[in-house]
Computed example of a mutant assay.
Amino acid sequence: WDQLAPTAPALLVLLVIALLAARALPVLRLGDDSATALGARPQRSRILLILCAVLLVAVATSLTGPISFVAFLAGPIALRLVRRDAALPLASALLGAIIVLAGDAVGQHLFPITLPVGVITGAIGAPFLLWLLMRGRTRA
């Protein structure tokens, strides 16, 4: 918690920017031509959203260190659970948070020594990624 105080202002500003910029997402899903016709600026919105996402990930990584394989786990699992495009980003984010919290709890309490959450997510994520690759190869 002592590391959160120096980064809290950056997190607050970035979260506000992300929430404001996210209002353009439904229009951007229509395509660049339609979004432009509706008064949006697709290129500007896309750059702002990507920059904001990268900075939010940078702040989170500076606080926690690298946590591997969360995206490889959260996205495909959320896709199987939700099956609705509109809810997929929120479901992926929530599932990613659950994976990190569960990995942290397992790393702290299940073993005689404390393991970092990145070790737990990597131990689960690497076989899952291999399974996804093998499954995709058999479908192709």
Rank of each mutant, 00 (worst) to 15 (best):
G122R: 03
V119Q: 02
L95T: 03
F72P: 01
P76K: 06
L88H: 13
G122L: 04
R80D: 11
S68E: 12
G65Q: 08
T114W: 07
L129T: 08
L133S: 09
G96E: 06
T36C: 11
I113N: 10
C52A: 10
R80K: 13
V59L: 08
R44N: 04
G103F: 05
G103N: 06
I47V: 15
A78G: 10
I120F: 04
V54F: 10
I99N: 00
L95K: 00
L51K: 00
L94P: 04
A97E: 00
I113C: 06
A105S: 12
L88I: 05
I99Q: 00
G107E: 00
L90K: 00
T64E: 05
I124P: 05
A93P: 01
L63T: 10
A78N: 07
P66E: 09
P127L: 03
A78C: 10
L88K: 00
A40D: 15
R84E: 15
L56H: 06
V106R: 01
T36W: 13
L88R: 02
L101R: 06
G122E: 02
P112C: 02
L90I: 14
R41Q: 15
I99T: 02
T61L: 14
P66G: 09
P112W: 03
D104T: 08
P127A: 04
V82S: 13
R44W: 12
I50K: 01
P66S: 10
G39Y: 12
P89D: 10
A40G: 12
F72E: 09
R44K: 06
G136S: 09
T114P: 01
C52N: 07
L81M: 14
L133P: 08
A74Y: 02
I120P: 11
S68W: 11
P76I: 08
V70S: 04
A35Q: 08
D85E: 13
G136Y: 04
A71I: 06
